[in-house]
Simulated assay, not measured.
Amino acid sequence: MSEEHAHYWTHPALPAVDLLDARYVRHTFGRHTHDSYVIAAITSGVEAFHYRGTIERVGAGSLGLVDPDTLHTGQAGVPDGWTYQVLYPSTASVRTVADELGAPLGTPGFRKAVVDDDRLTRLVAQVHLAAAQNQVLAASTLLRELLAHTLRRHTAARVPDSPPAAAARQAARLARDLLAADLTDPPTLEELAEAVGARPFPLLRAFRTVYGLPPHAWLTQRRVSTARLLLDAGTPPAEAAVRVGFVDQAHLGRHFRRIMGVPPGAYRRANAPAARDALAARADL
């Protein structure tokens, strides 16, 4: 079997988590980050991904774990590709469960990027199945169990690595805010540095350290995430592309699929207001 498929979706019972069920063979994820955690259970094949300076490989029966705001990629580790079920729980939802468990202060971080944990693998599958069958109570309960199990078994408080000086962090934040304020007409690096009172290379280095990406790649990711919000609201992909600064729908499509794993049209069909309303109505029955 070599055909690819991907379904990226949300469910009203799980407001703080996205779900992805996919098979990839030729598709590759470019360098990107998530503002959520990534818990990916591989069901067949092998996924390889560059993470924290090394190439990780995760095969069937194992899980890939990625921290928020941490640069990584994703590609087939064998010719037949890989299939997986993924959960993207928000940092707030994970922190809430960590507080309930009495975990140490600080942002929880995964100790290893690849783990073997049969129970966690089953919980990922059970959350997906419960959400797909619209079993609201089961989905929310299983997700809470999954997060608690993950925190107990696979995380520790994260300590930032050699953060840049306060002035450099402030310049990076200002640069990010300027880029976010106008996605359609970004400045050059030199113009951006001048606007925040920094020199180009130190700004580039600080920006990459603070946000995990250089400014141009961060801008592309912000454009995709903003386009996603527009698609959630029912905006057609072609209109969303122009509104966030892409040349056209094809330009959006390339970057959207590289980061999200599905084309924008498929994402919109699964997450448009009508689809969400239908799920919510079924959940109320």
Score class of each variant (00 low, 15 high):
A166I: 10
A167E: 12
A168L: 08
A168F: 06
R169K: 13
R169F: 02
A171F: 05
A172H: 07
L174W: 03
A175F: 07
D177N: 12
L178H: 05
L179D: 04
A180E: 09
D182M: 09
D182A: 00
D182Y: 12
L183E: 00
L183A: 04
D185L: 00
P186D: 01
P187G: 11
P187S: 13
T188S: 14
L189A: 10
E190N: 12
E190G: 12
E191L: 01
E191D: 14
L192T: 04
A193S: 12
E194T: 12
E194Q: 01
E194Y: 01
E194N: 11
G197P: 13
A198D: 11
A198H: 02
A198T: 06
R199I: 02
R199Y: 13
F201L: 12
P202N: 06
P202G: 06
P202S: 06
L203G: 03
L203P: 04
L204D: 06
A206M: 08
F207R: 08
V210E: 15
V210R: 12
G212I: 02
P214A: 10
P214W: 10
P214Y: 10
H216I: 10
A217N: 13
L219D: 00
L219G: 09
T220C: 14
T220E: 12
V224S: 07
S225Q: 00
S225H: 10
A227T: 05
A227N: 02
L230C: 05
L231T: 08
L231P: 09
D232G: 00
G234A: 06
P236A: 07
A238H: 13
E239I: 11
A240N: 04
A241Y: 06
V242E: 14
V244A: 07
G245H: 11
F246D: 03
V247S: 14
V247G: 12
Q249H: 09
A250Y: 11
H251W: 01
L252V: 08
G253Q: 15
H255Q: 11
F256Q: 00
R257S: 15
R258N: 01
R258V: 02
R258T: 00
I259L: 09
I259G: 00
M260Y: 08
M260V: 14
G261E: 01
V262Q: 03
V262A: 01
V262D: 00
P264R: 07
P264H: 09
G265E: 15
A266Y: 04
A266M: 10
A266K: 11
Y267Q: 08
Y267K: 01
R269G: 06
A270C: 07
N271I: 03
N271V: 06
